[in-house]
């Protein structure tokens, strides 16, 4: 198992580092992305000071830059994992190598796990880079240098595990349909909206809020902000953790069952080589 995971990780690493142009996009886009609502807030409120007062009134913290950058970093993490993993599957399918993987005796879940670990490692690196650069730009790094940050990281990790299941589900969708890119492009803003990248989910209508809570990173993000910026938890720290732990089992299980179904259907209808 470890050999297969290592081999897939190494393959993906080589593919990534041989074409390093993406690195610029990798760090700066999320920061620019979070600058938009910050500057928009200044414009609407009539300046940074008024924006701070308004934000404190609505959200409960003055540190809107950390709030936004955290949201933006979590968003790129979620999009990164889902997009990168799904598109890896599609790329393998288009190149013709997906069928080659299925011709080997290696357990397909070990192959998928190897790729997932790489995707998570890449997205986590992006997350850390965004926080570091954002922290240097806006001067909030000292606020992260406290023990409670570790708890925030735990909430993040508990959100990433079910996210990988989510990513595999999207991967299943991608290998089954032609218009995969359109679906992904559609999902990006929907997820940004639901996760609460630029606002707390508490301001959403109830039914939207509960729909948003099906996405693991919604809870992670809300609770990370709760820990670091002393805001409200989704429900309470323990219940939120229990929900995330349940998601850690439920989402990957649903994804594995779905993948098995998609693979079997493809084998009945003509293979995973075409779509």
């Amino acid at each position: 198992m470890l050999e297969v995971i290592k081999a897939v990780f190494k393959l993906r690493w080589k593919y990534t580092v041989r074409y390093p142009g993406w690195a610029i996009f990798f760090i700066f886009v999320p920061i620019v992305f979070s600058l938009i609502p910050i500057i928009l807030g200044w414009a609407v409120a009539g300046g940074p000071q008024q924006a701070t007062i308004n934000f404190k009134l609505r959200v409960g913290t003055e540190n809107y830059t950390l709030f936004m950058i955290l949201g933006s970093a979590v968003w790129v993490l979620s999009i990164g994992v889902m997009w990168d993993f799904g598109m890896w599957l599609r790329e393998e399918q288009e190149m013709g190598t997906l069928e080659q993987l299925l011709l080997t005796p290696a357990n397909i879940y070990h192959i998928l796990l190897g790729s997932t670990i790489f995707t998570v490692a890449l997205s986590a690196t992006q997350f850390i880079s965004v926080i570091l650069f954002g922290g240097l730009m806006f001067g909030f790094l000292p606020e992260l240098a406290k023990p409670s940050t570790l708890l925030a990281i735990l909430y993040l990790v508990l959100g990433i595990v079910p996210l990988t299941g989510f990513a595999l589900l999207i991967g299943c969708l991608i290998v089954s349909i032609r218009e995969a890119e359109a679906i992904i492009r559609l999902l990006e803003p929907i997820i940004a909206f639901l996760v609460g990248v630029f606002y707390p989910i508490t301001i959403m209508p109830s039914f939207v809020k509960y729909l948003a809570l099906l996405i693991p990173l919604t809870i992670s993000l809300q609770d990370m902000r709760a820990v670091i910026l002393e805001l409200d938890y989704v429900f309470n720290p323990y219940l939120d953790m229990m929900i995330l732990l349940t998601y850690c089992i439920v989402w990957p299980s649903i994804a594995m069952i779905t993948y098995r179904y998609v693979e079997r259907k493809a084998k009945k209808e003509g293979g995973l080589g075409g779509y």
């Binding site: 050999e3 297969v4 081999a7 993987l101 080997t104 005796p105 290696a106 192959i111």
Partner: peptide
């Protein structure tokens, strides 16, 4: 070849 070899244990 190394990659596919790894997938054959």
């Amino acid at each position: 070849l190394e990659y596919f070899g790894s997938l054959y244990s």
